[in-house]
Amino acid sequence: MECVILAAGEGKRMRPLTGQRPKVMLPVANRPILEHLMVAAAEAGIKKFVFVVGYGEREIRNYFKNGKAWNVSIRYVTQRQQLGTSDALKATEGLTSGKFLLMNGDMIVSASDLVTLCEMDAPVMGIHRTDHPQDFGVVTCENGLITGLEEKSQHPKSDLINAGVYLFDQTIYPLINAVGLSSRGEYELTDALDLMIREGQLAAHPLKVWLDMGYPWDLLDANTRLLSVLSPVQEGEVEDGVTIHGAVSIGAGTVIKAGTYIEGPCVIGKDCKIGPHAYIRPGTAVGDRCHIGHSSELKNSIIMPETKIPHFNYLGDSIVGSGCNFGAGTKLANVRHDHGIIKVCGRSTGRKKFGAIVGDNVQFGINCSVNVGTVIGSDSNIAPHSFVEGWIEDKTNIQS
């Protein structure tokens, strides 16, 4: 059986993190979202993959190549224009045979759910229960069949949603070839699904595990979930005087210097320099070639490769891009004074603790303060002693 993964989109709601990488390549527990998804399918027994790529496709191709490193085979199809999910699937015609799995590339699912799904008769839609169905395609079910599908209704008819996981056979291709442009100007898979629903053909399969990656703060939830089942591997050098509690993975070439205190679960990449006297708290993922230095504290955050947080810094519940540098004393707040829910540009994160979203190659001067819910665009320069809040566009120069 083949598995088709749709990985052509940019992920505009993830900006500025997707400025230099496609959404599916954003790291969670130090591995791209797409890798977690592919590995789950491989563990379910699937060895042949078709990636539909587009935005940032070079990074995907360079990372996964032909799949040999994972003992699978990968073929690529390029969707030149983002013309919708039906158009993306149409590009794979002739590359699948019999039943095949189709998944959106921006989520995380479990191998056990995929095993059960693949044993069913096609067509099947994976569904999931959520407390905010208005953000997704809402489905209604009866006797194991999908009876209705409505996109992002403000008055949803149920709390079950389309999870973007499907089992199809070759009969799907004539249906998507017959789909016309939607009101949004795209060729949408949901129009083909509506035809199946009207014929009473589309079965439902509830997924036990489903993590959606719609917004940056969703990355933190997924990061916490995946780190909680971490099998620690320590390949780096740990000096005397380091304290490690819980599950902590340390990559090859990394040095953890004396006085550092690490509480798992957390993961530290390759060729990093940690400490001396750094404090890394649970839920933190530090990418390759990072420097976390003296008296710097990290908590429940994602730090992408080649970022330096070297002296007297604090980051909590934040996502930081690659190639950033934090001047001494720079701190990212993560709690409101009234302990209320934090919003980012008017949109609720649903979280009482959330720091900032920092793009790639952002340079902070010393003693900067960043307020909760702040977004800082890539390639920005923040002058010493600056107070930063709100939405900062890419390549902004902030003078104190």
Rank of each mutant, 00 (worst) to 15 (best):
P133R: 03
T147C: 14
G137W: 10
N223W: 07
K152L: 15
I161P: 05
H155D: 14
E235D: 09
E239Y: 12
P232T: 08
E186L: 15
T171K: 14
A192H: 07
Y187R: 12
I176G: 03
E199I: 02
G236S: 05
L175V: 10
W217M: 07
P232R: 09
L175P: 00
A122D: 02
T171H: 09
L167V: 01
D240F: 12
Y215G: 00
T140W: 03
D121M: 07
H205R: 07
G126P: 09
L227D: 03
L202A: 00
P206F: 09
R129Q: 11
L193N: 03
K157F: 07
G241I: 08
A192E: 09
Y166H: 08
L195A: 12
P156E: 01
M120W: 06
T147A: 06
V139Y: 02
T224H: 08
E199F: 02
P123E: 02
E186A: 09
A222W: 02
G185N: 14
L220F: 10
A222F: 03
D191S: 13
Y215T: 13
E151C: 10
P123I: 05
H155R: 14
Q134P: 00
C141S: 15
H128Q: 10
D121C: 05
Q134C: 11
L219Q: 12
E235K: 15
G200R: 02
D169R: 03
I161M: 11
D212M: 08
A178N: 14
C141G: 00
V233K: 10
C118L: 12
V165S: 03
D169T: 06
M125K: 02
M196T: 05
F136H: 13
G180V: 11
N223K: 05
E186V: 15
P174S: 04
G144K: 03
K152T: 13
R184K: 14
S182K: 07
L227G: 04
S228F: 01
V138C: 15
T147S: 14
H128E: 08
L145A: 11
V179E: 00
G185I: 07
D240V: 11
E188T: 13
H128M: 09
A163T: 07
P216H: 04
G241A: 05
N143R: 15
K152S: 13
L189E: 02
V229G: 07
E199K: 15
L195T: 14
R184E: 08
N162L: 13
Q134N: 09
L226K: 12
E235V: 01
L219Y: 04
L149N: 00
Q170M: 08
E150K: 14
L207S: 04
H128C: 10
T130N: 05
L220R: 07
P232D: 06
E119N: 15
L160P: 06
P123F: 07
R225N: 04
L149S: 04
M213Q: 10
R129N: 08
E151S: 13
V179S: 01
G185A: 14
L160Q: 11
S153T: 13
Q170E: 13
D131L: 11
D135W: 15
L193W: 11
G144E: 09
T147E: 13
A192S: 11
T130K: 04
G214D: 10
R129F: 11
A122K: 01
G200W: 00
P123C: 08
G148H: 15
Q170N: 08
L227T: 05
K157C: 01
P206C: 04
G236I: 12
T116Q: 07
